[in-house]
């Protein structure tokens, strides 16, 4: 594919800058990956494998290392699965429900607005559920997004029971025959047991009303988050069986490398990336482009030095 080729050629450019595959080369590679929040253990394992592979194949030429690096990283990402970008599980007929979960301030509400826009562009009818009844201004925030995108928002008053909001929203979505219901929830830190139980309950209410729902449980992760994202992925999965990740705020300088380890360890794929605060700033995840992005600093530095 096209992204693949451009990825490979960029990696080639990058690695060609190094004359030989030596300790310095590996050290810089290691630093680049660590500074992208890939995670110490993953990086150490990767470096070990890489050095072994290089020795085994007796690789002296940096260009050949390119192949090995991209192979390994993409392998870490995909694991045993075949490398298809995973689409959102939206039913052909009937209602699909998507539940959004995550810690405070990562971008859940904003992502719902952006996804609603995307789905609408694809010709789907969309409805939003204001399940964050806790945070000041959360309902109004979702309402602004509803207006912006032109979709209906189901809400209760601040402080009410989020499970009750979900119940009403599912009923409304069913009776109005909408295609997709996007459910917002309040941000919560994963070590708050009560709040995590509340989330399980919210999910249960949805399943009770629509047996195969929610069709997706999307965990929103902030790309600036470090190793704690792994703990978030584990705990939110236990509470709600997360089916996919949205990696937000990739338009900054953070790389969000921890999703490699999350995919590798928990098999949760990234489905979308957030690239800004506008309605159009949501893109499907592309593993090759992502892996290249991890190295972009290295490339930039190299170019500066020239």
């Amino acid at each position: 594919t096209k992204t693949r080729d451009s990825f490979a050629s960029k990696m080639n450019d990058l690695v060609a800058k190094y004359r030989s595959v030596d300790e310095e080369f590996f050290e810089e590679l290691e630093e680049v990956l660590i500074s992208a929040d890939v995670g110490v253990q993953t990086v150490m394992d990767l470096m070990e494998e890489l050095e072994m592979e290089v020795k085994r194949r007796n690789i002296k030429d940096t260009a050949l290392v390119t192949e090995v690096i991209s192979e390994k990283l993409v392998e870490i990402y995909y694991g045993q699965d075949n490398e298809e970008i995973e689409k959102l599980n939206i039913q052909e007929d009937g209602l699909s429900v998507v539940l959004f979960v995550g810690v405070n301030g990562v971008g859940k509400t904003t992502t719902i607005g952006k996804l609603a826009h995307r789905l609408k562009e694809e010709g789907k009818t969309v409805m939003l559920a204001a399940g964050d009844t806790f945070r000041a201004g959360a309902i109004e925030q979702l309402e602004v997004w509803g207006e912006r995108v032109g979709v209906e928002v189901i809400k209760h008053s601040e402080g009410s029971d989020p499970a009750a909001v979900m119940y009403d929203a599912v009923q409304a979505a069913k009776s109005r025959g909408v295609d997709v219901l996007l459910c917002d929830t309040a941000g919560r830190l994963q070590n708050k047991v009560n709040l995590m139980n509340e989330l399980t309950k919210v999910k249960r209410v949805i399943t009770r009303e629509v047996p195969d729902a929610p069709h997706e449980v999307l965990l929103v992760l902030d790309a600036t988050t470090g190793q704690n994202a792994m703990s978030q992925a584990k705990t939110f999965s236990q509470a709600t069986d997360v089916t996919g990740i949205v990696l937000s705020k990739l338009d900054g300088t953070a790389k969000g490398g921890i999703v490699l380890a999350i995919r590798n360890e928990l098999s949760i794929p990234v489905k979308y990336v957030g690239l800004g605060e506008k309605v159009t700033d949501l893109q499907p995840f592309d593993a090759h482009a992502f892996v290249y992005g991890l190295f972009s600093n290295l490339v930039d530095n190299q170019q500066k030095e020239e």
């Binding site: 992208a36 953070a254 790389k255």
Partner: peptide
């Protein structure tokens, strides 16, 4: 945010 990773320095 206390959860910030390597990017905190930037």
């Amino acid at each position: 945010d206390a959860m910030t990773g390597q990017d905190a320095v930037n």
